[in-house]
Write a protein that binds this DNA or RNA. Structure first.
Length: 670
DNA sequence: GTCATGTATCAA
DNA sequence: TGATACATGACC
């Protein structure tokens, strides 16, 4: 091959020198900034071993714009990459020559020092890279929005009213403490029938009235709307902002800038808001921290609760974790004495709600006039009937849509196709049951266990439940809320409101009765957190009951999770879970990490991993089409485990070895 | 990731 | 001997 210039091909070094010399050496000497001519830059690269600041020279032309927190472009290994300027210094430790910054994308300091530090801590905690965490923490730039000035909100006048919290033991004290500018740490058990949003808003007002900022994360957009409404009722426009992805990039960036520019004092949002650049942060708060929406699905998979707890420690803020239930993590904070509990007195709880369990044994089929059955115990039927005389009745039933798998109607054995052993399903409304795999009709099916011939749906999806209840209570409107048709609220009139867990609409004055159907189904999940999660979902539904209303769960009265619901004692249940998990070396008393990769890759990763003392390695077991390894250590060695994993990832990336997915404390282990 | 360099390998 | 492939390490 000939050289493009037509020269003779020169081998090796000579050729490289020829290329280097190509631009005629008439470059002007670079004039550097007089003050702090060195910039430390975090470069946006996906490589774990390059996850540290690199020094660049600051040209005099950028002396004023190259501020800490600014987005910059730099030359790295011969190509232009994005980065964040972390700090300016007088000199560099780097022995070689520094490249100049290519460009300051914008002088807007979007990465505040506090958030930069938080990003580093989160990366360390989750054995990930700062560039991955930065993508979660700082929204994309929107130039038009950035050019606009952020208006200043009216001066702060709101004053907290501690009396709003007075039914809670320690509630008024918490608010007074926040108002005084202190940093209490509380786990708040929101009582049934209480609207959590105005209470949380009051804690925010208390903090902000002390001159500090506040940050609240909630699970989803419905919760954002509820809290936004509550805050808007207490604050002037512009004093708080909402950070959600679905508002669009411009609005999201405007809200972000209102915080980083110090205009808005209060931030509210979903999990990504945990990184919001709230100035003078005084309080971090989380509603319903057990919701799995707080687990970030992108690497390094941080959990908003942990991000906020890290942040609280870094910034020295107050902490408020509120829920109708209790996550094991929140319980652990109480157990260790790090946080204190704020809850209703027992007698007040008893006044507010009565929870009963209708066992599957007293199962009776309530029949409509046409003789078709609604699958309800007689107690449940009565509770609905009585409730409908007062107002709306909420019926929580797991899983959306029609029943997936059919079962023998005599012995409940799941029904297999007699040709290929696939699951038998109702394919469409009105259609005859058939195999989901091979399509063979289930006509003439015989149960291999009991010889029965009848099929039934062991799982009643909400649509079918709605149909059946509609028939059983023909004069009452039936409304459903699930999946992509979620209602946020329902009017205060008699109606059957059928909802899947987590999609329950709010009734203005509470539900006259709340029914929890098929509780066994939520408990039957194989997940480690199945019972904790089931209790959380029941508690959230039950909490929507009106004062003095009835809650009836259909299920096994002996199950500890249902007993905890009856006693309204999610804390006791979580405490018991912790003890059991402690014995099984599972979180929160242990720190767990999973490594996922193809078998050979995983072997190499495991061999290279320098585990702290006391670590246990389990597996590998198949996971999807790869293998998964579980590593666990006592909680005290958690930071060492994270560091070992981070070091392993750095070594692997430096050696260009195939990717291993590492998840520290995954939310949904096993 | 890209780029430059070093070492192994092989046809001519 | 020079051309090419692949491994390795730096990257500010």
């Amino acid at each position: 091959m000939t050289d493009p210039q037509g020269e003779l091909s020169l081998p090796g070094i000579a050729r490289a020198e020829a290329r280097r010399a190509k631009p005629p050496a008439e470059k002007k000497p670079l004039v550097l900034a007089e003050q702090d001519p060195v910039a430390q830059v975090l470069v946006d690269l996906p490589l774990a071993h390059l996850d540290r600041p690199f020094d660049y020279a600051v040209p005099a032309t950028m002396a004023e714009t190259a501020v800490p927190g600014a987005r910059v472009k730099v030359r790295f290994a011969g190509q232009d990459v994005d980065g964040f300027l972390i700090s300016r210094t007088v000199a560099s430790e780097h022995p070689g020559r520094l490249q100049p910054l290519r460009r300051v994308v914008s002088a807007e300091p979007v990465l505040t020092p506090e958030v930069a530090e938080l990003v580093g801590e989160v990366a360390a905690r989750y054995a990930g890279t700062r560039s991955d965490v930065l993508r979660l923490a700082v929204p994309g730039r929107h130039a038009t929005t950035e050019k606009k000035a952020t208006p200043s909100p009216p001066p702060w006048t709101a004053v907290a009213d501690p009396a709003r919290w007075s039914s809670y033991e320690g509630g008024a004290g918490l608010l007074e403490s926040l108002t005084r500018g202190e940093t209490p740490r509380a786990v708040w058990s929101a009582g049934p029938g209480d609207d959590w949003a105005p209470l949380l808003a009051e804690a925010v007002v208390a903090t902000a009235s002390s001159g500090r900022g506040a940050l609240v994360c909630v699970p989803d957009y419905r919760d954002v709307e509820r809290l936004d409404t509550a805050l808007s009722a207490r604050l002037e426009p512009g004093q708080h902002v909402v950070l959600t992805a679905d508002a669009g990039p411009a609005q999201r960036y405007a809200a972000f800038l209102a915080l980083s520019r110090g205009r808005a004092r209060v931030a509210l949002g979903t999990r990504a808001a945990a990184f919001a650049p709230v100035a003078d942060l005084g309080l971090v708060a989380l509603w319903d921290d057990g919701d799995d929406l707080f687990a970030e699905p992108r690497a390094p998979y941080p959990h908003a609760r942990e991000v906020l707890l890290l942040r609280a420690r870094l910034a020295g803020t107050a902490v408020l974790l509120g829920s109708h239930a209790r996550s094991v993590e929140a319980e652990y904070l109480l157990r260790s004495g790090w946080a204190h509990e704020v809850a209703l007195p027992r007698e007040e709880l008893r006044r507010r709600v009565t929870v009963k369990v209708a066992g599957d044994s007293d199962f009776q089929v309530a029949r409509d006039p046409a003789g078709r059955g609604a699958r309800l115990p007689a107690d449940a039927f009565e509770a609905i009937k009585a409730g409908l005389e007062q107002g709306p009745v909420l019926i929580q039933t797991p899983r959306a849509g029609y029943a997936l798998r059919l079962a023998c109607d005599r012995c409940r054995t799941p029904a297999d196709c007699q040709v290929c052993h696939g699951p038998l399903r109702v394919v469409g409304a009105g259609a005859a049951p058939a195999c989901a795999w091979c399509g063979t009709s289930a006509a003439g099916w015989t149960c291999p266990v009991c010889g029965g011939h009848g099929l039934r749906a062991p799982v009643l999806g909400d649509l079918r439940t709605a149909e059946e209840l509609g028939r059983a209570f023909p004069s009452v409107p039936v409304r459903t809320s699930s999946g992509d048709r979620v209602l946020s609220d329902v009017p205060d009139k008699p109606a059957l409101v059928v909802s899947t867990p987590g999609a329950e609409p709010v009734a203005e004055r509470g539900y006259a009765a709340v029914l929890l159907l098929d509780t066994w189904l939520l408990l039957a999940r194989s997940d480690l957190r199945a019972a904790e999660e089931a209790l959380r979902r029941w508690s959230n539904a039950a909490a929507l009951v009106a004062p003095g209303g009835r809650v009836l769960a259909v299920g096994d009265p002996a199950h500890p999770a249902l007993q905890a619901l009856v006693r309204w004692d999610a804390g006791g249940f979580a405490d018991r879970e912790i003890t059991e998990r402690q014995q099984a070396h599972l979180p929160p008393s242990s720190r767990v990490a999973t490594l996922t990769a193809p078998a050979e890759v995983l072997d190499a990763a495991r061999a290279a991993l320098e585990l702290p003392a006391g670590a246990e390695v389990l597996g590998p077991v198949p996971a999807e089409d790869e293998q998964r390894l579980v590593v666990r250590v006592p909680r005290a060695a958690g930071a060492d485990l994270s560091a070992a994993l981070q070091a392993m990832q750095a070594r692997r990336s430096a050696r260009k070895e195939p990717h291993v997915r590492v998840q520290v404390d995954p939310h949904d282990l096993g």
